[in-house]
Write a protein that binds this DNA or RNA. Sequence first.
DNA 1: TTTTTTATTCGAATAAAATTCATTATTTTC
DNA 2: GAAAATAATGAATTTTATTCGAATAAAAAA
Lengths: 154, 154
Amino acid sequence: MLNSALDPTDLEILRLLQRDASLTNKELSYKLHKSIATIHERVRRLKEQGYIQRIVAILDRKKIDKTLIAFSQVLLNDHTATTLNTFEKEVVKFPEVMECFQMTGTFDFILRIATRDMEEYHLFYRKLATLPKITSVQSFFVLSETKSDTAYPL
Amino acid sequence: MLNSALDPTDLEILRLLQRDASLTNKELSYKLHKSIATIHERVRRLKEQGYIQRIVAILDRKKIDKTLIAFSQVLLNDHTATTLNTFEKEVVKFPEVMECFQMTGTFDFILRIATRDMEEYHLFYRKLATLPKITSVQSFFVLSETKSDTAYPL
DNA sequence: TTTTTTATTCGAATAAAATTCATTATTTTC
DNA sequence: GAAAATAATGAATTTTATTCGAATAAAAAA
């Protein structure tokens, strides 16, 4: 592997580690029929080359009291660089904001918000609404989680 | 700790492992001023009690050719248990669907879709639209990612 | 409070895993 | 095809995880 270009072994490693990054090199070596040292070198390279960004613990949000998930659609007054940059710079500071995407279509940003309950969401909403140049914020709340996956199909 | 109820040590462990689960017990023990064995026991318990659901590798989606992220808002014909269950059962089978939430408000489900490009999204969209009892699918596309976090504030 | 029981922490010993390295095999380049 | 570069391997070493008994702290019972 000169540079980049993933072979079937790399892809299988990525598939497996996306599901369970606590697999040992030995376990991976069984599954992939390669030596432990080879697996070690492959994983090292996948990290070095940036395919694997990081290894994280996924928590049960209900156990840590993040019961309420909301999607907030934000519309801004205008789309000058200053307005967009200011909004982005400010919105990422809110700990309630898990994700923020600028979007095509009928609104400018979509935020995924995690709070304990509606009261806490309301407090967040009031903070958000006072940011400059905000035209509107529409909130939608998660009733139930059908699927929630961090692993991309490969 | 008889059962549940997280103390400051547990919370700090969860905070750190949400950011970087490749931290060793030794590194955690430095940061938290506890022995390695204590850290080991705490982490074991946090997993056993389900606070830590799993350890996963987060990939750089652009490097694995998932350039296009879409949010698809789905409206169903009706909300009988059968209609809802059938939709949920079918939609989770699509590999393009990273997340699916049932929502309050003007639509029934929001999906987060990861594809290589618009062509692949279009193919997905046509598959999705043929599921039974679907009234409408509205698609919004991510222009830029301002924040994307799996770690909850604790 | 005092005693008893239970849970937690700790350091040391052991087991397992990660990492390094010299060698061999394989692929690529010319 | 030969030389050079890249990748794979097993063994040795280093580091980490895991276990365990004793000490300590905390909680429950008397």
